[in-house]
Nucleic acid binder design. Structure first.
Lengths: 174, 174
DNA sequence: TGCGGATAGTTTACATGTAAACAAATCGGC
DNA sequence: GCCGATTTGTTTACATGTAAACTATCCGCA
């Protein structure tokens, strides 16, 4: 479809009802990522809610199933995109739903292993098909080549994230 | 920091691989969008924090500046990605910082116009350069062609979002 | 042995995002 | 003119996400 023109006046601009074109293709690309994410997240959030889960809760369960054995809290946190302290409450609520269990490690009493319950395993199995269906529904109209290229570009976009310095920020020296 | 989606998708993909040679690039693309967004959001969040703003607050101010005149709350909400009730608190805090003002419309007393203050305008002007810098920093290593293609693919990905039905959900009739 | 620092989790404080219920004001039809 | 539906915004309840401070443990090393 050659309806794309040479100017960078895209759909996002129309959606946001902006009056002026984007100041740079950089900005346009970044905002496109943010907006696409929001719309995807919204759909997944609703799907998960039908199963009584929030996106974060589903994420934790998927991570635990993927690893296949109990994990310390911080290991879970490191696989989530976000940071630590939220994990506590997250695990609390999953525990209240009997989807995970906490076991304190005997060798290192600081560590608490989080274990997936059978109930959670069944729930996840039940969700697999709808989740895959939503993935296909969201991007199934892109060609295989487009999907591959999209993934490649996003991976490339993330290559520099770690080293990007925030203007006005004092550089971190970990 | 894992740059590949190895962990949380591993088992499902492995299971599917056992049965089919086909691996879903749909899932990969969707997860790439989510992960890229998280990393970008994180950077912008830190930048905004240096100026005493949250991402949502900055968004509201940008929208108000873009429109150039007072806006009703719901008009602002409709341009934000998210939904209505959060706007109230958002405006509350911006008002407390004297970055916006509320004016009740005399003709339709239900409507409350939100106005940008001079203080906010100065703050935004001050932020323009760092924000653009961060945009460039995040995706500046992609070529112009890649940026255009990335935006095109993301826009195409969003084309179907509205019509995607959530598996197990009763269809929406807004 | 025992201290200082590092590590694993938790708690607290605050800003969001989502859903549901609600109040105030306006509009439409009769 | 009046009643009910609609529109606009707010409130309430709950789950996150972020930062900072705190607790319990463990580890290295003198």
């Amino acid at each position: 479809m050659a309806t794309k023109n040479d100017g960078n006046t895209g759909r996002l601009q129309a959606e946001l009802k902006k009056r002026r074109p984007f100041e740079s293709p950089h900005q346009e690309a970044v905002l496109n990522v943010l907006r696409t994410n929001d719309q995807f997240q919204n759909k997944f959030g609703r799907l998960f809610r039908h199963f009584g889960l929030t996106p974060s809760q589903y994420n934790v369960l998927r991570i635990l199933r993927g690893v296949g054995k109990p994990m310390p809290c911080l290991d879970i946190a490191s696989r989530m995109i976000q940071v630590v302290p939220a994990i506590t409450g997250l695990i609390d609520r999953l525990e209240a739903q009997e989807l995970v269990a906490r076991d304190r490690c005997t060798e290192d009493r600081r560590v608490i292993f989080v274990t997936l319950t059978d109930k959670a395993r069944k729930l996840l199995d039940q969700m697999d098909e709808p989740v895959m269906g939503l993935h296909r529904g969201l991007v199934g109209h892109l060609t295989q080549a487009e999907l591959k290229e999209l993934s490649r570009l996003l991976e490339k976009a993330r290559e520099r994230v770690e080293s990007v310095e925030i203007p006005g920020d004092s550089p971190q020296t970990p």
